Simulated assay, not measured.
Amino acid sequence: MGNVHRVVVLALDGVYPFELGIPSRVLDAADGRYSVVTCTVDGRPVRTNADFSVTVEHGPEVLATADTLVIPPFDTSLLTREAPAHAVAALAAVRPGTRIVSICTGAFLLASAGLLDGRRATTHWALAELFRSWYPQVLLDPDVLFVDDG
Rank of each mutant, 00 (worst) to 15 (best):
N3L: 05
F52V: 12
H58Q: 00
Q137Y: 00
Y16D: 15
T76M: 12
F52A: 12
P17E: 04
A66H: 12
A85D: 15
V147M: 11
T80I: 05
G32V: 04
G118M: 03
G2A: 14
E57R: 03
A113E: 07
F131H: 09
L116S: 00
T48W: 08
A121W: 00
G114H: 03
V41N: 13
R99S: 06
S102Y: 03
S102G: 08
T65C: 01
G43D: 06
R99H: 14
G59T: 02
L78K: 13
A50S: 08
R95S: 08
T80A: 15
R47M: 10
H58P: 00
D42W: 10
A111H: 11
Q137T: 13
L109V: 08
F131L: 11
A126K: 10
A126W: 12
E129I: 07
G97H: 04
L20M: 11
Y16L: 07
L79F: 11
G114W: 00
S35L: 10
G106T: 11
L79P: 11
V37C: 00
V8L: 00
R81M: 04
D143P: 05
A113F: 00
L12E: 13
V94H: 02
L27R: 02
E61K: 00
V144S: 13
T105A: 12
L79M: 10
A11L: 13
S35M: 04
P45T: 08
A85F: 03
L27D: 10
A121S: 13
P72K: 03
L63C: 08
L27V: 03
A113T: 09
G106D: 14
G150N: 14
H86W: 05
F74Y: 15
S102L: 07
G32A: 05
G97P: 05
A50T: 08
E19P: 02
G97L: 03
N49P: 06
S53C: 10
L91Y: 06
A30K: 06
V9Q: 13
T55W: 00
T38G: 02
V56C: 07
A30W: 09
P96H: 02
Y135V: 01
T65Y: 02
S112Y: 09
V46L: 02
H124R: 09
V41K: 10
Y16H: 07
L130M: 15
F18L: 11
A50F: 09
G97C: 05
R95T: 04
S102E: 11
